[in-house]
Amino acid sequence: MSNKELNIFKLLSQKPWEPAQAALDNEHDGKTFGLSKAKLGVRTVMVVSTVIFSLFVVSYSDRMLVHDWKSLSEPWLLWINTIILIFASFIFNKAKVYSDQNNFNKSKNALLLVGFLTFSFITGQLLVWQHFVSIGQYASTNPANAFFYLFTALHGLHLLGGLFFWGKATTKLLTNNFNVSKTKQAIELCAIYWHFLLIVWLILFGLMIAT
C-alpha cells in the first residue's frame, strides 16, 4: 500500500528551480503514490460513483419534503436480496484471502459462488420490480417509486460492470491460464469494488426504509 507520504502543501511549496531542490528532484521516480495504476483506477471510479450516488441521495432528500411523497412499502424480498449481497461480499473477501495464500483452487470456487450470489441478487431485484409492477406501482405513480427504480437500476448496472471483470478473472482461473500476480490483483480489486457496492446498497436501502 501507499508508503509515500503525500503532503500536498509541502509538494506545492517546492521551488523546482533551486539547485538544492533539483538535486532531490533528480532522484524522484515520477510516481505520486506507491499504488498500482489499476488500484488507483478502481479508486477513481469509486470516487466518481460516490459522487453520482451522493447527488441522487441529495435529490432524494430534497424531493422527499414535498407533500405528494408517499413512502414505499418495502417487500420482504428486498431484505433477502440484501442478505445475499452481504454474503457475496463476504465470500469475495474469502476468495481474496485464498488467492493471497496462492490457493487458487479454493479461490476459484469462492469466485464461482460470488458469481452465483450476485446473479441471484440481480434476479431478486428484478423480481421486486416485477412485484411492484404487478401491484400497479409504476415509476410515475409516486416519486418514491421513481427513486426506488432509479437506485436499483443504477446499482444493478454497477454490479453488471463489476461482473464483467469478475468474469474475466474467473474465466482465466477456470481455464488455468493466468498470470499469478495479475490475477491476484484482479481478485483484490473486484473484492474492493464488491464491498463498495455493498456499502452503497446498504446506504440506499437504509435511506429508503428509513423514509
Binding site: 509538494l11 517546492q14 523546482p16 528532484d25 532522484e27 524522484h28 521516480d29 515520477g30 510516481k31 488507483l40
Partner: peptide, 14 residues
Amino acid sequence: ITVLQARTRGMTMM
C-alpha cells in the same frame, strides 16, 4: 492517473 503515476524519472509534480 497518467499524470500521477506514469511520469518519467525526475519529473516531480512541480
